[in-house]
Design a protein around this nucleic acid. Structure first.
Lengths: 246, 246
DNA sequence: CCCTATCTTTAACAAAAGTTAATGTTCACC
DNA sequence: GGTGAACATTAACTTTTGTTAAAGATAGGG
């Protein structure tokens, strides 16, 4: 399997004006290994030695840290087209635990091969660096959410972010969309107790912005949600240099 | 001026086992431009086109975002040896404002030259990627601070992080150290109102862990501070792959 | 030396979020 | 069809944090 076959990954990179399908084609020595994981399994534990880099084809996961006192903080969500362990060639141990929320399909390189890939395919290296940069922006926005937004806006903001990221990975923009989340997970991501997470979520559902079925939350009125959240989408947009030459 | 002459930068990278002074030496076509900025000046505004990458030789700065409602959230602090605008070759506009806290000495490359540098000096590229990775870990820890720690621990934790980062950049480990911070800044970094920031800070000073003079805060008892904060330093340590070959 | 801007401090009060403890619901599994 | 685990809901209460308003301290500029 090669990079260009990972649909959501290729879809994201096609928004970059310096790259085309051809650039994603790698010769057979860079073939990827396919892996499948069931829901609620742990791909990597805090402290583990990192041996691989993964690209997600399908499914959701979370990256989180466990504290001394048992608290759990989700740093971000991992969606199709995202990369796990990009820094594995450089750092020895993982700082975070990665756990699947759904069943997950992914492709992997050994850490040691990534450096070769970067040197032989400089355009690809740039494209992957762009993903790293976007990840950093997403973390930055998470900091703003936790630091400066009240619970209801905080929740609306996260839900819209996830919606936008799914769209950027090629998921069609239905009027509504389902996310594999429950109120505890949202609390763990948003720095809220699960009780307060429930209160905040309830506020959204009361206003018919969202709806819940068993293990998922459906976004009903995305425009109103984005408005409520004061959502500024610039950090998710692929606005890259007009004339990037490699 | 070349990279190896930027003391705190070279000091940080010397902790990496795959790099030595020789690797930092670049020929004259990669010479850096020197810039000086006074205290409280703005290097970059949210939305600005990014034209350069900077490496800080001396002084402090902050990266922050301004919200719709006027709120301000500091994402992180920029210290000697840090890089500003590493992603400037890829992203068009800045998502953040960068403002100096003290007078600042820095060196710069044009965005367009960075890609050449990365291709001609692969070891350097890896070393700089390591800095990017550490920046990401620092953002992750900021998320945990904001999401899961109460104000007093939150503050102690940040102060210790800054102390450790200064040490990693070669600042001698005195028993005490002064940081160019006031209570408003700490509040803006920690997601607290300036009033509550003051309450939290007061708790530290009451216990003789810190002391204040005009525009700076002195850490008096670093061990007790770290203990109070449940500080786990692993995310700041340069534990990199034992056998990284480039 | 005074004036002003910037920080710091305090207090009283309000709002947001956490805690504890129960109970209800749903659904997979036996 | 019963049972247990996981998730959702509610309520009462506590703690943490924010808000407003005011006054004190300090340093630097004129």
């Amino acid at each position: 399997m090669e990079l260009s076959s990972i649909q959501p990954f290729a879809y994201r990179l096609n928004n970059l004006n310096f790259i085309n399908d051809e650039d994603l084609k790698t010769d057979s020595k860079f073939n990827l290994n396919n892996t499948h994981l069931p829901s609620k399994s742990i791909l990597l534990n805090q402290g583990d030695v990192m041996r691989d880099m993964y690209i997600v084809q399908d499914g959701w996961a979370i990256r989180y840290k466990i504290l001394e006192d048992g608290g759990k903080q989700i740093l971000n969500f991992i969606l199709p087209g995202d990369i796990i362990g990009l820094y594995s060639p450089i750092f020895l141990n993982s700082e975070v635990t990665v756990e699947t929320l759904t069943s997950l399909n992914l492709f992997s390189y050994q850490s040691s091969r990534i450096i070769d890939l970067f040197q032989e395919k400089p355009k690809l290296a740039l494209a992957i660096s762009w993903i790293a940069g976007q990840d950093e922006r997403i973390l930055g926005e998470q900091i703003v959410r936790l630091g400066r937004r009240r619970s209801v806006k905080r929740m609306a903001h996260l839900l819209i972010e996830l919606y936008k990221r799914l769209r950027n990975a090629g998921f069609t923009a239905e009027k509504s969309i389902e996310l594999p989340l429950n109120q505890s997970l949202l609390g763990e991501a948003l720095g809220l107790s699960h009780i307060h997470s429930h209160r905040a979520y309830r506020e959204l559902e009361k206003n018919s912005l969202t709806l819940r079925s068993k293990q998922s939350i459906k976004l009903i009125d995305i425009l109103k949600l984005a408005d409520l959240a004061d959502f500024d989408p610039s950090y998710l947009e692929p606005a890259i240099k007009p004339k990037l030459s490699v």
